[in-house]
Design a binder for these strands. Sequence first.
DNA 1: GTCTATATATGGATAGAC
DNA 2: GTCTATCCATATATAGAC
Lengths: 219, 219
Amino acid sequence: MARSRSASAAAKPAESAGEQELNRSALLAAAATEFAGHGLRGASLETIARAAGITRAMVYYYFGGREGLYIATLEEAYRGINAAEMALDVERLEPLQAMRKLVEFRIDFYAQNPTFVALVAVENQLEGAYLRQSEVVRDRGTHNLARTRSVLERGQREGAFRKGVDPLDLHQLMVSIGIFNVSNRHTFGLIFGRDLGSESQLARTRRMAAEVVLRYLAP
Amino acid sequence: MARSRSASAAAKPAESAGEQELNRSALLAAAATEFAGHGLRGASLETIARAAGITRAMVYYYFGGREGLYIATLEEAYRGINAAEMALDVERLEPLQAMRKLVEFRIDFYAQNPTFVALVAVENQLEGAYLRQSEVVRDRGTHNLARTRSVLERGQREGAFRKGVDPLDLHQLMVSIGIFNVSNRHTFGLIFGRDLGSESQLARTRRMAAEVVLRYLAP
DNA sequence: GTCTATATATGGATAGAC
DNA sequence: GTCTATCCATATATAGAC
């Protein structure tokens, strides 16, 4: 994870803007792992800096300190997730297939991004205090919800789905299954002997979620 | 939260076993809040001790240190939850009503125990490393799952529920909705403008969950 | 822009007084 | 059983060298 660099390297300015940017993103990458694993207060700036191959002082130089780094990490995480989520297009599928794909995508998506899920858990531990100050937030919700609503309403017009289902209820349902599957996999696995992180279990959860949602929407 | 006690109190032994037990449980109560809010590493022993009205040294005396206190806190939390969950009895209800009650109970239950939900999140952040060592675990899962299975099978025999549903899938579904509703309420609320913590929203989630589960089980 | 050095605080863990 | 005192390690935040 650490970029190789001589331990005894003297003060040596970056030769290019590119290399500076590299330090910044190395810090962000290391910070994501560390904050996700230990929370805002529990994270060690020393560990983050070392993993990024630079010194703690740089955290202050680039981000002003622990909180600044955390906020940047959180926003970066949401930005990356937004971009990936936007890529999914189901407009040309039949409502039933489209909805199934929406569900399955979401289950897989969180499973592939456990660090993001963990960072969201950390931000919830902080009662959303930092996300509250961020503008990256609003767009995110509206786009995902709009897509779900669009598929839902299309299905309702065509008679594939029943009326009277709130799109946000539906979205909440899908996200609940997908997030829990990742965020609580360790305790759930220990208590019930089912490893939610395994490939076979992921397939099982995917199938269960699709069936749940389609039955919830059935006329 | 702190028990009132003169700041300059000299070393004064507890007069009774009861008072010692009081210190121990005061520590556990304070620790639950602090660990739930800041994680294992992020928690401040100083804050915990002060909230309990005693000094940091007592943490070492009673629990041997940070980890010991954390383990005791986690086990205490699970014990309390176990006791409360055991109290629910749905054997004399019709399968449909019984299942509805099972779902609604679970939604309300987590909503009423946010500190427990947060502690579980912390333990997942630690990859279940401490729960793994605890024996309190196994009983817990088996009892809850057994009750769900019992109601499910009863309903299947009577034709109220379809066959081919895995009890653990069903349990996972209910727990997902209930836990997410609490664990991610802050970020969800900020992104979608829906306060999952409010009474009216709790009622909404309760209704949604019941409908989801009963439709999932419908023949 | 990056490092080393430093002050300052806080936490971990124990010893000793009562 | 509880406190105070203390040592040592680690973390925060900044200053100064290059």
